[in-house]
Nucleic acid binder design. Structure first.
Lengths: 334, 334
DNA sequence: TCTTTTTGCTAAATCGATTAAGTAACGAAT
DNA sequence: ATTCGTTACTTAATCGATTTAGCAAAAAGA
């Protein structure tokens, strides 16, 4: 019950592998194979249950029909949804996805890139970690098709799909200010990535636009390591400031989750007095009794564009450098 | 800047590929390669930045060091977490993971199995859909290492890692009964899978153990297609029964999410009067104001066991048929 | 009839590894 | 001097495809 190869078919029919290969790749006409022979081969192939070996194909052609996906953590719903949308989109082109989680660690991230390249992926979709820039540059030089999603680097040429972090963040914070909240604490994700810089910039821009002075002490930086306690600490400090704050703005969904969780526990009896908003969210946030304003990224669009940009690179000789910025929506739960 | 192959190194040193291959695979001693030559090769390999090609290796040895993972939907947090745990565990063995979502559709599911086999995965970890049994049997016959997780089939030999659905479900329902809830509506996920059967059986067993008659009209079956509206309908019917119910038990986390969401919207002013419990949950459920009892599966253990069972098959000539049943915990949110 | 073109197909190299089988050189044993 | 056993390598086949170059026979043209 072992696999049927081209050679098996050719032996069975007493013809060359070449001929069978031509037929199986639909090049019968182009290569002037007679109609009878073509039909005979097709029939025999079906009869023997022939399936081409991706390995053989890949080794010879250099195309593996596989895309490598590197995210910070596949178990985070943002990345899981991204993975799903990339999976579906890639499938349309006949591609599969191999994935890895970097945990925002550049060492892991670059190891995965190397590994996937060794496995001959045709392209890489990467949520890069801080410090990956040099490596991405290497990819560009090696002409390995790649797309950065969610975050990118401004100092190198690359292909990118991101949401409009600055504008989105600006609108979220502006909304708070309009609601009368002037002292807005910001829980920042301190990983040195452009998306986070954009969100911080949006925060500052909104303050400035409303003539509110930027107050450094309202910004708390949370690292990836020990994110749970660090977020709790950040929120506790914000809630206990001498001059009370009006709102807390979380830089991403994970921070928002941890922050809201902490507030619930810390403050379980009395309802929290601060407004809460975040960039990006979890679906379930709609179920909370906590009023909340958040930005929504179209993850499907992110995935679609990423795959599209990969395919564009795979099918083009010319170097491509494209930055696609997608809009975000603001949603409010009362 | 193209990849360095064994042949490149051998040419550079004026030796055979065989020799280089031996050295690179740590067989220098076994194959009696001289120490000086071994060092020379190792040095040159490092110097030239040699990385073995997985494709070449895989084609020759038949081992791709890749595992195929097929889940219902990678964007569902249960499967995303499972994927992460499998990723980490597989990495320990030097394996990567290629994934696909079946959407509980046997057609998609079997297509993915075929595709992954064509791509020469060394093993398959599958959350099978209803109707996959025949195909899984084929895998067994072809001696393709495979493990079913989360659900399985009782009528065929297979390797399985599941949680104890019957016992877990029994304990969840028993807990409700102890709390004084006798009329317990059950929102079942109607996909004809053993895990769901086990949960239903646990529900019945708990009723029986407490001398409560099983009432067919309290069980609502929700299909995968149109799951949102169907869940809403099921819950609405349960809430509007002539003889009021005391509690609703959801068969899985997705149903629980949709159900709780519906109850919130349907019943937004007055607090819901029924108790809610579910098999499995989402992390965020701890943030809801809704009191809730649910079973917790150790997804990490699920993943670890699945990979372990795959590796056992890969490294064994003998056929293996093992069913591992993991315990679940019950958690209560007040 | 002889040359040229077309038709229909094949041989062999190649991608990058692994591995069974073999060989040349040298020292030791008979 | 011949045989044998090591040592340190090499040759060539193989995995399963693709693809360039070419060959023999038939058909067309002169």
């Amino acid at each position: 019950m072992k696999k049927v190869s081209l050679a098996d078919i050719s032996k069975e029919l007493g013809v060359s592998k070449t001929l069978v290969s031509f037929v199986m790749n639909g090049k019968a006409e182009e290569k002037r194979i007679s109609t009878e022979m073509t039909e005979k081969v097709l029939l025999k192939a079906k009869e023997m249950g022939y399936k081409p070996s991706y390995l053989g194909k890949a080794l010879r052609t250099g195309k593996s029909n596989t895309i490598g996906l590197i995210v910070a953590d596949i178990s985070n719903s943002f990345f899981a949804k991204l993975a799903r949308s990339i999976e579906d989109e890639a499938m349309k082109y006949g591609y599969n996805v191999i994935f890895g989680s970097s945990d925002e660690d550049s060492h892991k991230s670059t190891q995965l890139i190397d590994l996937f390249i060794d496995k001959n992926v045709d392209g890489l979709i990467i949520c890069p970690s801080k410090g990956d820039a040099k490596y991405i540059e290497k990819l560009q030089n090696m002409k390995t098709p790649n797309v950065l999603v969610d975050r990118y680097f401004t100092d190198i040429d690359c292909n990118v799909v991101v949401v409009d972090n600055l504008e989105g963040s600006f609108r979220i914070v502006k909304d708070q200010i309009i609601k009368g909240n002037k002292r807005i604490g910001y829980v920042n994700f301190n990983v040195g990535l452009t998306n986070m810089e954009g969100r911080l910039a949006g925060y500052k821009k909104a303050l400035k636009a409303s003539g509110i002075a930027f107050d450094e002490s309202l910004v708390k930086n949370v690292p990836f390591k020990g994110i749970e306690e660090e977020t709790a600490n950040a929120v506790r400090e914000l809630l206990n400031m001498d001059k009370p704050i009006d709102a807390i703005y979380f830089a991403n969904n994970h921070l928002a989750f941890l922050g809201v969780k902490f507030i619930k526990e810390y403050n379980s009896n009395k309802k929290s007095l601060v407004s809460i908003c975040s960039f990006d969210s979890f679906e379930f946030m709609s179920l909370l009794d906590t009023p909340l304003v958040y930005g929504v990224q179209s993850i499907d669009k992110l995935g679609e564009n990423a795959v599209d940009l990969i395919m564009k690179q795979i099918n083009s000789v010319a170097q491509i450098n494209e930055i696609r910025v997608l809009p975000i929506d603001i949603v409010e739960i009362k």
